[in-house]
């Protein structure tokens, strides 16, 4: 069943927020305003949005080094995400975390880990906590194709399976882990096939079709809330840019990149919404302009915010 018009428009807006936010981060990085490194979510927006469209505020997510999009889709504040990426005191983690470590516990965003695969058992643990506390919350755990070769994947999903924990394991298969093509490191085509090894459903979806992701996640959430256990959802997608800011991604064939750019999830969804009569072209444009303005505000906020004072580095170590 299709989501309501309001939800569809919300999804469209969130995808645009992520896209333009990331483009802005890319631009600021070029101006030397972003310390460290960045891993952008451009091209993969449909995954986070399609999943999070099924979540309540009190549901949880875990995130990765490529995590800006997850936080935005879960309802994170663009201002505070941008401020964190710029290393400012007003950022979500007071400048301690940066691009790879954004968290907003107030909306169930349990944090981005830069240790590939480390979020998988943590998500299972949040699922266990839900079960022990007897609520009907769920957890969505985002991770990459590369992460699915970590021991944490096997150990975490197996535990979630045997205890029927309310977790969606969402594999964002963008075909590469840095320069490593999926086929170099696994002999199967679908990560979701591994679900069979844990006795749980494994679903493959077009990760560039937000409605397909939405539908798969919806069923997994229903199953989880009913206490029937976890689902492994593999979303086939592609990152438009290099792995990190300075990666020219020359290891990807040009034709492959071009083919995937044609499958860009945003124009696809936009056309669909217009076709369905949910939005007119003009309304879509209007939303995009609102989003751009919102991002400008976030940038302004982040740029005008102060850096933390050096001594603040010593705070927050212990509770």
């Amino acid at each position: 069943m299709l989501p309501s018009s309001d939800k569809l428009v919300w999804m469209f807006r969130k995808m645009l927020e992520i896209r333009h936010f990331e483009e802005k981060v890319y631009e600021l990085y070029g101006q030397n305003l972003v310390p460290g490194t960045i891993h952008l979510y451009v091209g993969e927006e449909a995954v986070a949005v399609g999943v999070c469209a099924n979540l309540r505020k009190d549901d949880y997510i875990t995130s990765t080094h490529r995590g800006h999009g997850h936080c935005i889709a879960k309802g994170g504040d663009l201002k505070r995400i941008m401020a964190e990426i710029l290393g400012k005191r007003t950022g979500y983690c007071k400048g301690k975390g940066g691009s790879m470590h954004i968290a907003d516990f107030s909306i169930g965003m349990l944090g981005a880990t830069a240790v590939v695969g480390a979020g998988i058992p943590i998500a299972a643990g949040a699922g266990l906590s839900i079960k022990l506390r007897g609520t009907d919350q769920v957890v969505a755990c985002f991770f990459g194709d590369g992460a699915s070769n970590q021991g944490t994947f096997h150990e975490g999903i197996n535990m979630a399976a045997i205890w029927k924990l309310p977790v969606l394991f969402v594999c964002e298969n963008n075909l590469y882990a840095m320069g490593t093509r999926q086929s170099m490191v696994m002999l199967i085509e679908n990560v979701a096939d591994r679900a069979a090894a844990y006795g749980i459903p494994g679903v493959v979806v077009d990760g560039n079709d937000v409605l397909a992701v939405y539908e798969a996640a919806k069923q997994a959430v229903e199953r989880a809330r009913k206490g029937e256990g976890p689902t492994l959802i593999e979303c086939k997608t592609y990152r438009h840019k290099g792995h990190s800011r300075f990666d020219p991604a020359t290891y990807r064939p040009k034709e492959e990149v071009e083919e995937w750019l044609k499958k860009d999830p945003i124009p696809r969804f936009r056309n669909k919404l217009v076709e369905m009569g949910v939005l007119t072209e003009n309304e879509a444009k209007g939303i995009e302009e609102e989003v751009l303005a919102e991002i400008e505000e976030a940038v302004k906020f982040a740029l005008e915010s102060p850096y933390p004072k050096p001594e603040e580095a010593l705070e927050d170590v212990y509770a």
Binding site: G36, C93, K96, G97, G98, S99, P310, A313, L314
Partner: peptide, 13 residues
Amino acid sequence: VPIPFSPPLENFV
């Protein structure tokens, strides 16, 4: 402390 991200913090520790 764990190594913080923001340059003024990292430079300090």
